[in-house]
């Protein structure tokens, strides 16, 4: 005996619609995202693991990895420190011009990577404002590591602040005020109250900032000068290899960035889950 047909709830689609829409969405994602992602792995390993490892152990590739790590190690802490300062300033105080400041922080998001790199050249390049002074003093910024760092800092500038500002705004100032009335000083409040409360949010911003810092291509491409083993980051190394029709090697090096992306996604998901739990806790904490 079949069960009597249950009337559908108003928000429910008929099974046929459900299946058709799901299938269409999955095909779209597969064609656009999943197939290219799979292509990176397949192309990298097509001619065997031996060639794959050989491509990664190439001295130029290793130099690119080292440079990428160095650039991220400088840019990420700088922008994390900025993010904390900006979030503290904007969410803990009231002052004229605050909303302007907040929208200026987003500015680099609206700037094409090529332009982000270009402004560094305009400032520090041979014909730039500080160019002549710098070359007189033997400092090379453009087509050298400092330029790559500057361009990366510009591009990844808003990431941590963008995560922290809404989060700290939602948290409110009560706990910090409580700590103040209880006699805590500025650093004590920051270390023992604020930092523990925002740590997951901060980490989330750092993860996103790091992913962009290591993967940035356009901006870095403008300032690097593509000097092999010296000013090539991983993405630039990929471009060079690809341009020389060394596809296998290009995909092998690109797979490093692919792994970085996967790690970023996993970290992002688990941090989102943690924030979700924290919010649920917070919801239980505050009265209905």
């Amino acid at each position: 005996m079949s069960a009597p047909a249950r009337p559908r709830r108003p928000g429910e689609d008929p099974p046929a619609v459900r299946i058709a829409l799901t299938a269409l969405a999955l095909v779209f994602l597969a064609v656009l995202v999943l197939v290219p992602a799979a292509a990176v792995v397949v192309e990298a390993l097509k001619d065997g693991a031996g060639l794959f490892w050989k491509a990664l152990r190439d001295p130029d590739a290793l130099a690119a990895v080292r440079l990428t790590l160095l650039v991220a190690a400088i840019a990420v802490p700088l922008n994390a420190a900025f993010g904390l300062a900006a979030a503290w300033s904007v969410t803990r105080f009231r002052f004229p011009g605050k909303s302007v400041l907040v929208s200026l922080i987003d500015l680099p998001f609206g700037v094409s990577p090529v332009i982000s790199g270009m402004v560094t050249v305009l400032l520090f390049g041979a014909q730039g404002w500080f160019g002549p002074w710098l070359s007189d003093h033997g400092v090379k910024v453009v087509f050298a590591v400092p330029g790559i760092v500057l361009a990366t800092v510009f591009v990844t500038f808003p990431f941590v602040a963008r995560e922290l500002i809404p989060f700290m705004e939602a948290q409110g100032t009560e706990e910090e005020e409580a700590a103040l009335v209880l006699g805590a000083g500025g650093w004590q409040i920051f270390r023992s109250v604020t930092l523990p409360n925002v740590k997951w949010s901060l980490l989330y911003g750092v993860v996103l900032c790091n992913a962009r810092a290591m993967g940035e291509f356009g901006a870095v491409s403008v300032v690097s000068g593509h000097i092999r083993g010296v000013t090539n980051t991983i993405p630039l190394q990929v471009e060079i290899l690809y341009g020389e029709y060394q596809f296998r090697a290009a995909f092998a090096v690109a797979s490093l960035l692919f792994v970085l992306a996967l790690v970023t996604l996993v970290a992002k998901k688990s941090l989102e889950w943690r924030q979700h739990l924290a919010r649920r806790e917070g919801a239980r904490r505050s009265p209905a």
Binding site: L29, P36, A37, G215, F217, P235, F247, F258, A261, K269
Partner: peptide
Amino acid sequence: RSLVDAVVDLPFALPTAVSGIALTAV
């Protein structure tokens, strides 16, 4: 479903140079 949900963020997470050569190859 949660895997598909994660795949949606891949274009954000994947460095553009990698996306570029992967899309070209495909």
